[in-house]
Nucleic acid binder design. Structure first.
Length: 430
RNA sequence: UCCCCGGUAGCUCAAUAGGUAGAGCGGUUGGCUGUUAACCAAUAGGUUGUAGGUUCGAGUCCUGCCCGGGGAGCCA
């Protein structure tokens, strides 16, 4: 008998097939019994009819518990009463293992309990849907850049020095010296961009910040494109196209999962190019009018991010930040050197910053000056300075946070559900 | 790091004013020929996070510690 996956079951109507999976739930109404079988691709209702108590199928049914592993065989039948429209009339149940006392029941549980059982929680419907969206988002990102001629250039995770901040790095021993887990691949991207023109890196980033909010993970995934000869303008265009592409893909391929998550697709469908742009100088008074206590020169907090997202149903691009609150490598505006050519994309619906980027300094003297001003060890940046010595060109890029994007797509509150095994401030198990 | 909140059955919660620790779900047993987190009946299940203190008496009040949740700062 042919082994098929539940997501393909419609193609096998009225045929005898085999499904390998786990018991999601079972129900009984005396002489009619139902097993909901999940196989990783979906959930299928299987039925056992009539017969007497000693029928082998009934005996097997009675033995089964939630999450027991099994192979079922039978005929696929279209039936409106079955969730999904198809069910399997069972001829055979082969039990692989009886699961004893599966901790996650089909009833309510609190988050701490579920996080403690994250390895099992992944089997639940909603978690499954969120991670399916994650898969789609990642695939969309890869396709977007690959199809536009970007070269995937993996950047190192073990690095000899700080990229941006210095107090938020994970330290580890590297034989007889110290190394740090990467917070960003950007500096290395600048080197590969000079070698390959347009590149992107896609990997985990580590921040030892003691952040305890629904928008932070200690370990998160980030995609970072970098383009030689590109300006701030070009990088805004690129970020905009990328987000449009991701949204379109999720809406096309993962509509079922959005339904499972009760995510209203309308706010996503309403997003159109171009995204509104507003400078930092212009947005601060608007925020103050809306009641924010922000002062010129402050960076945005969560309340400001929410207020900005109220400005439009599209993501909003904030540009030209005070150079002081941005990273040392940000290119200054040529008319207003106190402003940095950076951009932050704020997602709608209060999902906050999902993209941060901008144009990098390409002038050697200016970069040297900034490294000094920021008290960074010059030796560690020798290779980075080389990029400005040997054929320096303007260049720009950004970083997109995968988990923040996925929580926005899914309309879920907490970022911890958007990665299979989240690393949080007070949780590294499982 | 700071602020706020919580820890009672396997899970989700309840326990008036300090006075014998309860319910639903899950488990088990039985019933039901189309269930949709099925339903109905019965049944087992507890050192109230931990260490101390106050009291005739503490789940309840006080202190320390442990664990967790929400938020701030910072950021994607």
């Amino acid at each position: 008998m042919k082994w098929v996956y539940i997501e393909d079951i419609a193609a096998f109507n009225d045929q005898e097939v085999e499904v390998r999976g786990w018991v999601y739930n079972k129900r009984s109404s005396g002489k009619v019994r139902f097993i909901l079988v999940r196989d990783g691709t979906g959930i299928l209702q299987t039925t056992v009819f009539g017969g007497d108590e000693n029928h082998p199928l009934f005996k097997a049914f009675d033995e089964l518990t939630q999450e027991s592993s099994l192979i079922v065989r039978g005929r696929v039948r279209e039936d409106k009463r079955a969730p999904g429209g198809f069910e399997l009339s069972l001829q055979d149940i082969e039990i692989l293992q009886i699961a004893k006392d599966y901790p996650i029941t089909p009833k309510e549980h609190a988050t701490p309990f579920l996080m403690e059982h994250r390895h099992l929680w992944l089997r639940s419907r909603k978690q499954h849907a969120v991670l399916q969206v994650r898969v789609e988002v990642i695939k969309a990102i890869r396709n977007f850049f690959d199809d536009r001629g970007f070269r995937l250039m993996d950047t190192p995770i073990l690095t000899p020095s700080a990229c941006e901040g210095t107090t938020t790095l994970f330290e580890t021993k590297y034989f007889d010296q110290m190394a740090y887990l990467s917070q960003s691949g950007q500096l290395y991207n600048e080197a590969t961009a000079a070698a390959f023109g347009k590149v992107y890196c896609f990997g985990p980033a580590f921040r030892a910040e003691k952040s305890k909010t629904r928008r932070h993970l200690i370990e998160f995934w980030m995609v970072e494109p970098e383009v030689a000869f590109a300006t701030l303008e070009d990088t805004i265009e690129l970020g905009q196209d990328l987000l449009m592409f991701i949204i379109e893909r999720v809406l096309t391929h993962r509509r079922r999962d959005l339904e499972e998550l009760e995510r209203d697709p309308k706010p996503l469908e309403a997003i159109t190019k171009p995204f509104p742009r507003i400078t930092y100088d212009a947005v601060v008074p608007k925020l103050q009018d809306k009641g924010s206590a922000i002062r010129y020169g402050d960076d945005f907090g969560a309340p400001e991010e929410s207020l900005i997202s109220e400005l439009s149903t599209n993501p909003v691009c904030i540009t030209h930040f005070p150079a002081k609150i941005k990273a040392f490598y940000m290119q200054p505006d040529k008319d207003r050197p106190d402003l940095a050519l950076g951009v932050d994309f704020m997602a709608p619906e209060s999902y906050g910053e999902i993209i941060g980027g901008g144009q990098r300094i390409h002038d050697l003297d200016l970069l040297e000056k900034r490294i000094q001003e920021h008290h960074l060890p010059r030796e560690a940046y020798a290779w980075y300075l080389d990029l400005r010595k040997y054929g320096s060109v303007p260049h720009a890029g950004f970083g997109l946070g995968v988990e923040r994007t996925v929580s926005w797509m899914c309309g879920i509150k907490h970022i911890r559900e958007t990665i299979p095994f989240p690393r949080l401030l007070y949780r590294i198990y499982p």
